[in-house]
Amino acid sequence: MKANYGYKDGSGEYFITIDTDKCNCCEECVKVCPAGVLEMVPNDFDIEADDMPAVTEKERWKIKYTCAPCKPVDKESTPPCIEACKEDAIEHSW
């Protein structure tokens, strides 16, 4: 399942996508995020599955701002959450 959290506004599209089919629920992304954007939540889509990462309700509508420090303009560096994910399960739309 591809879970997209975020929004679209006049300035662009800001979505964090988590591919739960790739994710192994290791929690690394949650641990490395400096701003508490991610959290582990019960997987309501598959009751047999472990907790999965998600963007917190509090942050969903402002990730453009919260994630900004992780996204320097030089574009060379990868944000910590994406860097930490060995399964390539996280994508950002911007």
């Binding site: 399942m1 591809k2 879970a3 997209n4 975020g6 929004y7 679209k8 979505f15 309700e57 969903r60």
Partner: peptide, 12 residues
């Protein structure tokens, strides 16, 4: 009816 993808918009 099992979800394969979703997108939630939380802006306003």
């Amino acid at each position: 009816g099992k979800v394969t993808a979703f997108l939630m918009n939380d802006k306003c």
